[in-house]
Design a protein around this nucleic acid. Structure first.
Lengths: 245, 245
DNA sequence: CACATATAGTTCTATATAGAAGTATAGCTG
DNA sequence: CAGCTATACTTCTATATAGAACTATATGTG
């Protein structure tokens, strides 16, 4: 057999093609986050490749954040867990200094046509029906973040019909469980504005107070957009850190 | 000789030790940004190592952003370019759509004891003398960014005594040329505040306008802090994009 | 049962080797 | 001189192999 399994453009390197195949198996849901990937030796055997070549393919996927490796234990599909990371920016620590998931209140949830900018972000034709939500997140009963969220109606029909009470504080696990939609990464854009009357009311701040706005497009392993979200929080407690070079 | 050249803790892998040696040669200034690194084969020969081991060491340094590789051309010490800096969002484009270096006006420059938070960031004892500057950056004669800058006095004595007229619009090249201090990377923290009277005056905005504050600690290849800087600009048109996972 | 010890399986490091692919330059040809 | 060609040098891909380092599990011992 040799590597007939990896047919296709032989202009691109074998290790890349293997990486593509393995990445696709995650996209297709054949292996799920937390699952163990066959060992390097087994993969080498299966595909008729040298161990080094397989290892290089895994290197690619690890650096992409798709896989995770542990010496002696194995290689696993990484559980993407960045939901808390947006809120890390907002410094949501408890008095004990620990991070915690804030309480979520869904204020509104209905099906209506998507506006242009949302449809564009979700790569859908304008005017197509979507699920629109307003959500408020609170820390110790203090409102900290107000969110508008949009989902395409099509793969989220089951979510639209689900009772609100059954939706917990985190949405992404629900997307996965109820609709098989797995969020792998996201694009975020940060801007600043002065609080509108609406935002001021929700966040209980004075009108005109500086507000951080984060627009997020959550994407699957296949890089297709899943959810559009705009979050607003008081800029006061916001602090974002990064390393540049 | 074999790899006697790479003595030291043989608990850590050879490729790591080689990476350490090469990184150090950049820190010491034996090779400068833009310089070419000996080829993989030559390094392998010199250190008595297999080609693959050398390559792995280079992989490390490339991923750290210290080196840069081009197939067929060679491996080079990377010129640090702060393209990813949060600061670039204050660099407005010229009418032709090109980015340009804004004009810089140094308003003040004097030697005085460093305040606590600066001393801490620069890893110096509190109260030690430092060079303090106020600088205003303008685009087409419009003030866009106001900066406070601190340097430790000790390695920057020559800079302190230099006439202001000889300092151009960019500081880092001067640090390198005059004091041999090479900035390799930086940590940046972004926050938001309402414009103080002082800031409002400098940036010619109304008091209370949302202002982006970026605190930066610039560091050398050896990761030691070189410069502390706090920049303030109008938040109005600020937009920062990033990918998370 | 509790606790060492052996064992099998995993990733990680290192070597050696060969050729492909890309780049720059010297030298030849018209 | 302009333009092609050969050549030498670079990084990149791929194979094969061996053992080290680490982890989890099974096994034996007290």
């Amino acid at each position: 057999m040799t590597q007939a399994v990896l047919a296709g453009d032989d202009r691109i390197p074998i290790y890349q093609r293997l990486a593509d195949v393995l990445r696709q198996s995650v996209i297709d849901g054949q292996v799920k986050p937390g699952d163990r990937v066959p060992s390097e030796n087994v993969l080498a055997e299966d595909y008729g490749l040298a161990a080094g070549t397989v290892r290089k393919a895994l290197d690619v996927l690890v650096s992409e954040g798709v896989f995770e490796r542990f010496q002696g234990r194995g290689t696993f599909v990484r559980r993407p867990s960045f939901d808390a990371s947006l809120f890390r920016f907002f410094r949501f620590r408890s008095p004990e200094g620990e991070y915690s998931v804030p309480e979520s209140r869904i204020l509104r949830r209905e099906v209506e046509p998507m506006p242009g900018h949302v449809a564009q972000a979700l790569e859908r034709p304008e005017g197509v029906p979507g699920i629109s939500m307003s959500r408020l997140r609170l820390q110790d009963d203090v409102p900290t973040v107000a969110e508008e969220i949009w989902l395409a109606h099509e793969p989220f029909r089951a979510f639209a019909e689900m009772p609100t009470g059954e939706i917990g504080d985190l949405l992404y696990p629900v997307y996965d469980r109820v609709c098989g939609q797995l969020v792998a990464r996201a694009d975020e854009t940060l801007t600043v504005e002065a609080a509108s009357p609406e935002t001021a009311r929700l966040l209980r701040v004075a009108e005109g107070t500086p507000i951080i706005v984060i627009e997020r497009v959550a994407k699957g392993y296949d890089n297709r957009p899943i959810e559009w979200r705009r979050s607003r929080g008081r800029a006061e407690q916001f602090s974002y850190h990064t390393e540049i070079r």
